[in-house]
Design a protein around this nucleic acid. Structure first.
Lengths: 216, 216
DNA sequence: CACCGTACTATACACTGTACGTTATGGATG
DNA sequence: CATCCATAACGTACAGTGTATAGTACGGTG
């Protein structure tokens, strides 16, 4: 039996290949068996490096989160906050599977720390007290997550012709009597399902609200 | 063979039972075969009423979204917005599977309309122009989704002793040199992973930002 | 060279969603 | 009341999943 030589695998290689597979075939189509096949290896070989599938997901998430750029220095704090939030959104857009990975299970430790440290540091230096800084961090983080996941899913929907057609027709069949405002604003709603402007609009809303509470 | 008599099933019954199963066993453990067994029926019987699993998910989502209360009248518009957002959050907390259902696929038509109509109506009557109303609706909706999904997942994590222990230890093992702010604010961060106050804090931030743009 | 831990393999199990073809039954019709 | 047929529910089957358990051969160390 032509047995695969030893030490051809490593956590690094597995994670990188897993990411490749997720981004080419889509995160939903990802499977341990498919990944093993891609690596030219039996499915059980992966269990030498990861306890189970979720464990592998965690590693991929870590791998992606490590790509987040550092917080830019020497800027007013609102611009720094903006940069961090935009950075996370951009990373999610570049790696759509990240949205699913983040939605699946909460962050665990190391990755949270990387995002949190930058944002919390900015907020503390701006003069916010610990509680407000923590609350603001959670708010910003969950906003970015929710807005960007939504954006990605809407974009995916638009790419699937069947789903897109069904959504259009149900949208058009809405009774103008029952849903007058929605029918009236249909074009605007279609335009605000994503994009930089939409994201920045919400972000600016949060920042504007935050400025009201700016410490002395 | 003791064959199940006809017309024992209906879309209504299937959806209600599916919801029961999801809420008792957890949404992840839900399967068509399990649901069929619960109904005392073969797995293929379900395909008379739903084209596939996703189709059933859509129906359950619709069923849950229909429980959203109407927008309260005769209140200042910020209070109306607050009521809508809190209502959606409450529904998600009462039916945790809703978070997963909403995260899985974007809303499709009828359900979107119900949420959107209330919120958009309030915003338009408050005097916001169509574009701003649409942008605000998307922002509020994605914030509620992101914040509440996060909250639910963190709560689930806390219930699983294994995951909770692992999270605590990685949190405690963070180098105070590398992540000084996170280590410093650990207690505050632990306290702001959810709860009414945390949700309202973010919501008020958005509303405060919105008031700045209030039309004359 | 012999040994042993371990990186990989083989086999197997209990699941999943669903395509296909078959049956028997409740309501409509003669 | 008898007959018929659309269709609701069935059984079987397939290709796929994650992973438990047990076995095997190889590479580095004595």
């Amino acid at each position: 039996m032509a047995r695969t030589p030893r030490n051809t695998l490593s956590s690094e290689l597995i994670v990188r290949t897993a990411l490749d597979v997720m981004e080419s075939k889509g995160a939903d189509a990802f499977s341990l068996r498919g990944l093993a096949a891609e690596l030219g290896v039996g499915p059980m070989a992966l269990y030498t490096y990861f306890r189970n599938k979720d464990d592998l997901y965690d590693a991929v998430r870590n791998h992606l989160m490590a790509l987040l750029p550092a917080v830019p220095e020497d800027l007013p704090w609102p611009d720094q906050v903006r940069a961090v939030c935009r950075g996370l959104r951009l990373l999610m857009l570049q790696h759509p599977c990240l949205a699913q990975l983040l939605a699946g299970r909460p962050l665990s430790g190391q990755e949270t720390a990387r995002v949190a440290e930058g944002l919390l540091g900015v907020l503390r230096k701006a003069g916010f007290d610990p509680e407000t800084a923590a609350r603001t961090h959670t708010t910003l983080f969950t906003y970015v997550l929710g807005a960007t996941s939504w954006e990605i899913q809407m974009a995916a929907e638009r790419r699937d012709p069947e789903a897109w057609r069904r959504l259009r027709t149900t949208m058009e069949s809405l009774s103008a009597r029952e849903f007058p405002t929605v029918v009236d604003l249909a074009p605007e709603l279609a335009r605000t399902t994503g994009g930089d402007e939409q994201f920045d609009y919400g972000l600016d809303l949060l920042l504007a609200g935050l400025k009201v509470r700016t410490p002395s």
